[in-house]
């Protein structure tokens, strides 16, 4: 094929370069800028090198927040992915109940995040909330505003309620794309229900589940709105995950340097773990 070379074609790329520059590159570079300098206001900057990075990486506070973050993320993944798949498997594939199920499943996803936080906050209040009161009436000493365990329980329950639907919908999309012939062939081959799941349904759902895991991983690692409305990171620091901690440092204490350094580390962790997840799950795809 004959290719025409004309460098003026680059002008066509300018609009998108400008767009990306303004909404991603420049804000990110501002953060990079703050992360390597010390400022005392009035736009006076002093070079600080990697001081802030060292400080963040060595601080116990960051370690704790990161630890809590990892526990939270892996807990919700461990619950939401299997639960989502199970619900998708239980949903009807044909018939009048399909749209009903789909709408029910989509509802939690349509509620604004701060509303989800507020709903669960009220729902779980021990004195007036339905959940909180019921639990106490049943004899549990439940108070999510005072007891860290209860706060975690409520937080995870809220996230599972809010986001399992996403996994369900993705898994369901994977399931309905399997032609009937596969199930018929499996029946003829005498496959057990488990074998059908293991050798037909799971492999066919693999791609969508990879997307589900990635989305849930990234979103849960960045959870802020619902959490900040529900517990605000408390009681104490017990539910202070990375994003909450970051906001406390940046806007509460106005430590812009460490906050910027932490943002970058935070960003790199998400990038790295996403890459690891994706590579692991797609490992066999190329063979």
């Amino acid at each position: 094929m004959n290719k025409t070379h004309d460098n003026r074609a680059w002008f066509f790329v300018l609009p998108v370069v400008a767009l990306v520059a303004f909404n991603a590159v420049i804000p990110l570079m501002t953060v990079v800028n703050y992360s390597v300098q010390e400022t005392f206001g009035d736009n006076v900057f002093f070079w600080a090198g990697v001081t802030w990075f060292e400080q963040v990486l060595q601080s116990e506070r960051f370690h704790n927040a990161l630890g809590r973050q990892l526990i939270f993320t892996f807990t919700i993944l461990a619950i939401e992915i299997p639960l989502g798949v199970a619900i998708a498997l239980a949903m009807p594939r044909k018939g009048p109940w399909v749209p009903v199920c789909l709408v029910l499943m989509a509802l939690p996803l349509l509620i604004p995040w701060n509303v989800v936080g507020a709903m669960w906050n009220i729902f779980a209040l021990p004195d007036i909330g339905l959940l909180g009161r019921s639990l106490n009436a049943l004899g549990f000493d439940y108070n999510f505003t005072r007891q860290p365990g209860d706060a975690w329980f409520t937080l995870i329950l809220m996230d599972v309620w809010h986001w399992t639907s996403l996994v369900v919908l993705l898994a369901y999309a994977g399931l309905v794309s399997i032609p009937d012939a596969y199930y018929q062939a499996a029946k003829i081959d005498g496959a057990s229900p488990f074998a059908i799941f293991r050798y037909i349904q799971l492999p066919k759902m693999k791609r969508v589940l990879t997307i589900a895991v990635l989305l849930r991983f990234m979103d849960s690692f960045m959870i802020y709105t619902e959490l900040s409305v529900l517990t605000g990171g408390g009681p104490g620091n017990s539910t202070t995950l990375l994003s909450i901690d970051l906001v406390k440092i940046a806007l509460g204490q106005f430590d812009l340097g460490p906050a910027a350094a932490m943002s970058l580390i935070y960003f790199l962790i998400i990038l790295l773990l996403s890459w690891v997840f994706y590579t692991l799950m797609m490992r066999n795809e190329q063979q």
Binding site: P179, A181, Y182, Q184, A185, Y199, I200, P203, K204, N284
Partner: peptide
């Protein structure tokens, strides 16, 4: 069947 059914994995 009309469309080949194999167990992919």
């Amino acid at each position: 069947f009309q469309f080949p059914v194999v167990y992919d994995t």
